[in-house]
């Protein structure tokens, strides 16, 4: 319910706004930013500890449950965070309607492709085959 307090009264009444989503994207950007702090630190630690190791060792460590779960969380959180972020940038700089739609769509495609490809790779490292 805390989340509702950040919504403007108009958003609660009509659910509208320039993007028809009220302050939802703004709020989700904050949530993903807070989550990104520990996840990014974890990513840096994981990468450093894997530097210079053989492929077999990297596969074993990346595929181990804790590391794989942290990497999955990083990918999913980052995907949502960067999708909102780039949408904001596009809306700021691209004003012509069709181009804006093309860029917004491109943003969505890019983020989904990256997120699913990365998640698939992590799952494959974990489950083998």
């Amino acid at each position: 319910m805390k989340q509702n307090q950040i919504l403007t009264p108009m958003r609660r009444v009509r659910g509208l706004g320039a993007a028809h989503t009220g302050t939802q994207n703004f709020w989700h950007q904050r949530v993903t930013s807070v989550a990104a702090i520990p996840l990014t630190i974890a990513l840096i630690i994981i990468v450093i500890s894997l530097l210079g190791r053989s492929h077999a060792a990297v596969v074993q460590i990346l595929g181990s449950p804790i590391v794989a779960i942290v990497m999955l969380l990083f990918i999913i959180n980052t995907a949502y965070h960067m999708w909102i972020g780039l949408q904001e940038i596009i809306i700021d700089y691209v004003h012509e309607d069709k181009l804006k739609l093309a860029c917004l769509m491109g943003n969505t495609f890019f983020v989904f492709a990256i997120a699913f490809a990365s998640a698939f790779a992590i799952l494959k490292l974990s489950f083998g085959v």
Partner: peptide, 21 residues
């Protein structure tokens, strides 16, 4: 933020390469 957006490709490449062999 914009640079990191495309920089995620590096992480994806790393993970996919590790998973590929």
């Amino acid at each position: 933020g914009f640079v990191l957006y495309f920089g995620v490709l590096l992480i994806a490449w790393w993970l996919i390469a590790a998973a590929s062999g």
